[in-house]
Simulated scan of single mutants.
Amino acid sequence: MSDALPASIGTVVIGAGVVGACVAGFLADEGQDVLVVDEGCGAGSSANAGSLHVQMQSRFMRLYPENVPNMELQLPLYPKAVAFWRELASSLNADFDLKMTGGLMVAESQDQLDFLGVKARRERQLGLDVEILDRARLDAIAPYFGPSIVGAELCANEGKLNPLLCNAAIRSWILARGVVLAEGVRVEGIARSGTGFAVTTTRGTVTAGRVVLAAGSGTRLLAAGMEPAITIPAVAEPLHMNITEATAPLIGHLVQHADRMITLKQFGTGQIVIGGGWPARQDAPGGHAEVELASLIANASLAQHIVPSIGNLRIIRTWAGLNTSVDGMGVLGAVPAIPGLFVAIPGDAGYTLGPLSARLVADVMLGRKPGEDISPFRPERFE
């Protein structure tokens, strides 16, 4: 990390999460000079629980039913995003503890199983590899569930990884490519300056030819402060997570629930991460996320209910992070009203989509046709 910001640079990326860091890395691989500025409030990537989601998450479908058409529109990107994680691990020669063992969304009633059946039929139409398992078939591949589980939807494309390993490897990659990383630095404003931009920060002003807004929910205020103002309705969602002590291999899949807030997965280290959307709190708009005791208790209790054998494990750490929600899909690409300005926000389950989203935005910036059609995700759709 550099102590002094450069007076000028080709590109400033705001946000050092997985998306911003990967945009910077892909640009630097092509010889571009890049500064990444990050306030360091521990938002999404640094607090991620390591799920590689592909199937539509029932939690988002319940919370934001109006966004389901957009979720479906972006759904085909998810299996490609998981495959891209594998490509990234190979290109960086890094161990991400990435396991493609499939994901199980479990049901505790026939109504829930029927809901999963309807969801699975639609997902198959959109290209996912999913099927419904009754309890007997579920026991054959996942005998660890408690007696309340009646069946599950199996998505073969899903998996899990260790975000601590991923984030460290990505950081090493971008630093080795000469990216200037300024952490603990807040961007206070962005203004047009000649054919480029003046980015005012708490450590001075940097002029840049291009700016990438990859600050998750923080992108909303940054975009609104531009001239002309840009509307990006990104909202912070503070979430709570827990991790247990290590134990013998137990949970092989990414586990979710058809109707309740839970995710479970086990790292190669043996530790089990318990998440799934229980709320945390945010100390102030744009500030840090903080854990909630009620969420810790409810999250752990539900995990034990679903997989009783984890009940004797100790929780060794809890933490909170900020998920970013927009309208059910990402915001990717150039801002036509302000040449040189780009937005890089993935959709729901943003860590899964992160590297692929970054690749698509970087391709646009490099004058290439991106490998996927990103026109539905264009920033100007909110104007």
Score class of each variant (00 low, 15 high):
23 V>E: 00
202 T>D: 13
272 I>T: 03
280 A>L: 11
368 R>H: 11
199 V>N: 07
202 T>P: 09
320 A>G: 10
351 Y>I: 14
322 L>H: 14
82 V>N: 07
236 A>H: 01
166 C>Y: 15
300 A>V: 04
233 P>W: 06
270 G>M: 04
87 E>N: 14
260 R>V: 03
328 G>A: 01
216 G>M: 03
353 L>I: 01
101 T>Y: 05
375 S>M: 10
141 I>M: 15
159 G>V: 08
16 A>I: 08
355 P>Q: 09
67 N>A: 08
234 A>W: 07
45 S>A: 15
163 P>Q: 09
31 G>I: 05
19 V>A: 00
164 L>C: 10
121 R>S: 14
354 G>V: 10
227 E>P: 01
10 G>V: 00
348 D>V: 04
10 G>Q: 13
95 D>P: 06
8 S>G: 06
344 A>D: 04
298 A>I: 01
148 S>N: 09
2 S>H: 11
189 G>V: 11
160 K>Y: 03
190 I>S: 09
96 F>H: 02
363 D>T: 02
325 S>E: 09
188 E>Q: 15
208 A>V: 01
77 L>H: 13
380 E>H: 09
117 G>H: 07
132 I>F: 13
234 A>K: 05
250 L>P: 04
114 D>N: 13
56 M>L: 15
221 L>A: 14
326 V>W: 02
2 S>V: 15
285 P>V: 06
51 S>R: 05
210 R>Y: 04
350 G>N: 00
117 G>M: 08
178 G>A: 03
